[in-house]
Computed example of a mutant assay.
Amino acid sequence: MSFKLIKPMKLNKGDKVATVSLSWGGAGDDEILWRYEQGKERLQNIFGLEVVEMPHTLKGSEFIYNNPKKRAEDLMMAFSDKSIKGIFSCIGGEESIRMLPYIDFNIIGSNPKVFIGYSDSTTTHLICLKAGLSSFYGASVLNEFAENVRMHDYTVKYVNKTLFSNEPIGKIESPEYWTSERVPWLIENKYTERKMQPNTGYELLQGTGIAQGRLIGGCVEVLEMAKQTSLWPSDDVWKGAVLFLETSEDMPEPTYVEYWLRNYGTQGILNKINGIIWGKPYNNKYYDEYKEVIYKILRELKLNELPVLYNVSFGHTLPMTVIPYGALAEINCEESIFSILESGVI
């Protein structure tokens, strides 16, 4: 079944975990620091973790932007430190690919541990993938853990199931409600809850029967920055995989998604995979247009039977589940069920 990755050890209450700013450095900006502290508090109080910062985590957005080497050093230090059991990304951004020249893949491969984040953290997930380690596409400190008033129960549930348990993760339910409402990160908004909307559940775009494969993917815009770099996955990673893709709060126009997907087709990737999981679009913008683009590209490739499950909550809308890279997943087309058939950790 295509590729296998090293699974990290599960997290336990009392474990020390590190927070890192590998992309945008806003966690350390004066006006946002309260938000970081709120996310840190949730990691401590809800999950029982001891949270430490790396030397540059809170140096602020200007420093972080100007020093990709220091970001990489923080990541290497967090992996090297035997007392640290997990690494939590503060937030995404748009240019963590600049860390690539400063990464020591041997350090990561020799020190397997939990890394979690999403959006521009896709780059760090590809770094872990190249090092042979399974990482976790999921909540970040400033967003989900620091959600106004309280974390969503759905997000808490899947963080616990995926990072704190070595039992098979099982069926991934679709949340009943969702939001991507933007409430500015001002301290006066701290007690303003975002408005939730009813969710419509998973939508099977095409496919029959049951498809299985190992999970690979991320934020589609960030994956574009990795193409033709040393991080781009090799053919054996795509073969028989379940590809998960989602778009960011930039809400790219459908035409661009069409171009990007056509590239996946031209590379032969879409012919190699066993299925696609597509994330709920931000604000539900282009919900139908993205579907049409997916149909169009798959029809061009005569892949009319490739299973595609749409509107899955693993990205830029809340609440969100956690996707472990390399874990064996299943799409049940007959019942529109998405399952992860093994544990994410050992």
Score class of each variant (00 low, 15 high):
residue 37 E to D: 07
residue 192 T to C: 14
residue 102 Y to A: 15
residue 215 L to P: 06
residue 145 F to T: 07
residue 6 I to D: 10
residue 212 Q to W: 00
residue 319 P to R: 02
residue 267 Q to T: 00
residue 291 K to F: 13
residue 331 I to Q: 04
residue 177 Y to H: 11
residue 326 G to Q: 00
residue 29 D to V: 02
residue 80 S to V: 04
residue 267 Q to G: 00
residue 160 N to S: 14
residue 178 W to Q: 06
residue 230 S to F: 01
residue 279 G to A: 03
residue 60 G to Q: 12
residue 171 K to A: 09
residue 314 F to C: 06
residue 218 G to L: 05
residue 60 G to N: 13
residue 107 I to L: 09
residue 61 S to P: 03
residue 299 R to F: 14
residue 95 E to H: 13
residue 325 Y to P: 03
residue 132 G to P: 11
residue 62 E to T: 06
residue 233 P to M: 01
residue 157 K to S: 09
residue 12 N to S: 15
residue 189 N to S: 09
residue 66 N to G: 15
residue 221 E to D: 09
residue 103 I to T: 11
residue 160 N to M: 15
residue 41 E to K: 12
residue 342 E to N: 08
residue 35 R to F: 05
residue 327 A to Q: 02
residue 153 D to I: 07
residue 151 M to H: 10
residue 34 W to P: 02
residue 128 C to Y: 10
residue 305 E to Y: 07
residue 70 K to H: 10
residue 113 K to S: 09
residue 96 S to L: 08
residue 6 I to W: 03
residue 203 E to S: 14
residue 322 V to E: 01
residue 193 E to P: 04
residue 183 V to N: 06
residue 205 L to Y: 04
residue 75 L to C: 01
residue 341 L to F: 04
residue 265 G to Q: 02
residue 19 T to G: 10
residue 272 K to D: 01
residue 128 C to L: 12
residue 80 S to Q: 07
residue 231 L to E: 07
residue 287 Y to W: 11
residue 33 L to R: 07
residue 285 K to F: 12
residue 242 V to G: 09
residue 43 L to F: 03
residue 259 Y to C: 02
residue 105 F to E: 10
residue 283 N to L: 14
residue 26 G to D: 05
residue 45 N to H: 05
residue 262 R to K: 06
residue 93 G to V: 09
residue 60 G to T: 08
residue 223 L to E: 05
residue 146 A to M: 13
residue 129 L to C: 02
residue 103 I to R: 12
residue 106 N to R: 06
residue 246 E to M: 08
residue 203 E to L: 14
residue 13 K to W: 00
residue 101 P to R: 13
residue 234 S to V: 00
residue 154 Y to L: 11
residue 5 L to Y: 11
residue 130 K to Q: 09
residue 51 V to S: 05
residue 138 G to W: 12
residue 223 L to T: 06
residue 239 K to W: 00
residue 316 H to T: 11
residue 215 L to M: 09
residue 96 S to A: 15
residue 41 E to S: 09
residue 92 G to N: 04
residue 57 T to D: 06
residue 277 I to L: 08
residue 276 I to M: 12
residue 111 N to A: 08
residue 186 L to G: 13
residue 174 S to E: 00
residue 330 E to K: 12
residue 63 F to N: 09
residue 258 E to G: 01
residue 240 G to I: 04
residue 187 I to S: 10
residue 194 R to M: 10
residue 164 F to D: 03
residue 336 S to Q: 06
residue 149 V to F: 02
residue 157 K to V: 05
residue 172 I to P: 06
residue 272 K to F: 00
residue 182 R to N: 10
residue 175 P to E: 04
residue 216 I to V: 10
residue 95 E to I: 10
residue 113 K to A: 13
residue 197 Q to E: 14
residue 143 N to W: 11
residue 158 Y to H: 00
residue 104 D to W: 09
residue 205 L to F: 04
